[in-house]
Amino acid sequence: MTRDIFDTLPAPERHAVLRVMPMPADANIHGDVFGGWIMSQVDIAGSIPAARRAGGRVATVAVNAFTFKHPVFVGDLLSFYADIVRTGRTSITISVEVYAERQRLTVEVVKVTEATLTYVATDEQRRSRPLPPI
């Protein structure tokens, strides 16, 4: 297992909220996965803890930060880890980290992306609503 000194692996007891393997349709002709595809998966992963905390529907209102640290290739197994970092009256800010498990001659795990997104809880009419108490 190869590690970048700045990209430590998540603790073993931490569970990925999403795991997915990009396919050829998600990449360019060289097998490099599109950044937009990764961004959409990050948004899905971030919405999972946000919707749980909101007790229902949420909408993405901001991508506060998004960093691509290493390329992602067709066949990498991506694990998305998402944590709530802040809540407001109606909003939830989520940190998402993405690790790629590359299965070449040896298994290599690298942190490929990190992002911070903000979601807002919404009602049936898609208007913002207060978060329920914990």
Rank of each mutant, 00 (worst) to 15 (best):
D26I: 07
T8D: 13
S47K: 00
V74L: 03
I92W: 14
Q103F: 05
V120L: 10
L78M: 10
P133R: 08
R57M: 09
A121I: 07
D123N: 15
I48L: 15
V110G: 12
G36V: 05
P22E: 00
R86I: 01
V98M: 04
G31K: 00
A54S: 09
G46E: 05
A16P: 10
T93I: 05
N28H: 02
R19W: 00
A100N: 00
H15R: 13
M39P: 13
V61S: 06
E13M: 05
R3S: 07
M1F: 06
H30T: 05
I94A: 01
R89W: 02
P24D: 09
F80N: 04
D76W: 03
A45K: 09
V85P: 10
V72E: 10
V112S: 03
V98R: 01
L9P: 05
P22G: 08
G56A: 06
M21K: 13
T2N: 02
Y119N: 15
V107P: 04
R89S: 05
V109M: 08
W37Q: 02
M1D: 04
I134E: 14
A59G: 00
P130N: 02
P10A: 01
G36Y: 11
V98N: 05
S47H: 03
K111Q: 14
V33T: 12
A11S: 14
R129A: 14
A50I: 00
L77P: 01
I5Y: 08
M39E: 08
F80M: 09
R19P: 00
G36P: 09
R104A: 08
T87M: 10
Q125Y: 13
G56H: 03
I29D: 00
S40Y: 09
Y99D: 11
A50Q: 01
G31D: 00
T113L: 03
A59E: 06
Y81E: 08
V63K: 06
R3Y: 13
A27W: 01
P130Y: 02
R89P: 01
